[in-house]
Design a protein around this nucleic acid. Structure first.
Lengths: 230, 230
DNA sequence: TTATATTTGTGTTGATAATACACAAAATAT
DNA sequence: ATATTTTGTGTATTATCAACACAAATATAA
């Protein structure tokens, strides 16, 4: 019983960016063709015959947005028969993070419009992209608590308070600043630089950087990153 | 630049079963055709045009093994260009659990051979199925610690020690029996029956059952299941 | 220039949860 | 009847979590 199968395979990416003072955004592109022409959608597209899924996402992101991705992992695969009105398309979705110094959009010739949208002010999204976004947001929230991915949303050097604000705004919870700092510091994965933050109203802050090497070596010893809240 | 895409979409399932005293197994089928003819492989196959991914897994499992699944979730999608030597096939893999009273294999007319294999004595697997299995095993190990899925590997009523052995053998770690029991009991998700285990050499044990309703209501109050170890 | 507002930086204490630890009771097998 | 296996249970110590407030450094406004 061999059935001729005609299913298209696409990838889509939910790419998060974070700016100081609680502004979490994702990258969207404006569709140039039907269906959902002129709607906003997640960047992505069909996988080519000879590229891996991850290569496909990276290529599409480059073509459509020009943004350099700092962290990428597979999210989930969506395959309901009618998620695309034309024909059957299954989409393997990816979860990405971008540091602020990589925010700049330079779309290729392929260029539809690409733009950052604050997550709490999203336009209507094409296809089932709203569902995909929601899963990505919830993945982001839960990952923050057991993996130090927050640092992939901050520049290499950052004041400690940026990390605080990142956690409170993304998890939508208050934290005790002293306990939070004590906890993070106790892990020894932050390295103090001798620089200070410049701008800003208030006392200047020391800049820290995340020490990847240290984190990796701790992992090998069975270290377990975990941030719980009130 | 529209490229004609010809990629096949398949599903595969890593289905775990657990028997008393530390025997963790997965379901495999013997392939009837090339490539990898007569090799063992994960149950699965091509997705039909009009069925969802999850329906496809369930159908394949029924056709190929006849086993009733007690827990099913998506695992990961594998899409390297040459994972199938014939043509490009991406596989959406699933993670399943089966209670002992559903172990019996009754393969359909479709029937290749199907069989349970102890996880520490697996044959060589077709395609990249070894990789898929390893990811599933590691998912099982980590899920055990933060979600009460162990109960989907036990019959409805079970002696407490079955749960103990399940944890120690799957996580390959020793536990303190008293502390483990104290912890699980403190959650109030186990209900005591008035039955006792019969067979077995040693003191008979009370039988418990997992109270799904209670667990669900606790979840709503922000309850967080967690089992840590030495 | 003085006062006000904003943000950074820091310790201690009490409460809660995790860990370490051993032996008697009930059954089966010899 | 004796030995073996498995179940069932409590306490004391230690580590972690949670609650809590104020001074120092700078920018802004009066």
């Amino acid at each position: 019983m061999s059935v001729k199968q005609d299913i298209k395979v696409a990838v889509d990416a939910v790419v998060f960016g974070y700016e100081s003072k609680g502004n979490l955004s994702i990258l969207l592109i404006k569709r140039g063709i039907e269906p959902f022409k002129n709607s906003w959608a997640l960047p992505g597209g069909l996988v080519l015959e000879n590229e891996s899924l991850e290569d496909a996402v990276k290529r599409e992101l480059k073509e459509e947005t020009g943004v350099t991705i700092d962290y990428l992992e597979q999210l989930y695969s969506f395959g309901k028969p009618n998620r695309d009105p034309r024909n059957r398309v299954i989409s393997i979705s990816y979860f990405g993070l971008v540091k602020p110094n990589h925010f700049t959009i330079k779309a290729d010739t392929d260029a539809q419009e690409a733009q950052w949208f604050s997550v709490d002010n999203l336009p209507n999204l094409a296809f089932d992209h709203q569902t995909i976004f929601e899963m990505a947001k919830s993945r982001l929230q839960s990952k923050l608590t057991y993996q130090p991915i927050g640092f992939d949303l901050l520049n290499k050097e950052f004041p400690f308070s940026d990390l605080e604000h990142l956690y409170t705004s993304i998890l939508e919870k208050e934290i005790d600043r002293r306990n939070f700092r004590k906890k993070i510091m106790s892990y020894g994965i932050l390295e103090e630089t001798n620089k200070m933050s410049q701008k800003g109203s208030g006392r200047p802050a020391k800049l820290f950087k995340f020490n990847t090497t240290k984190y990796d070596s701790l992992l090998k010893e069975g270290f377990h990153f975990e941030i719980k809240f009130v």
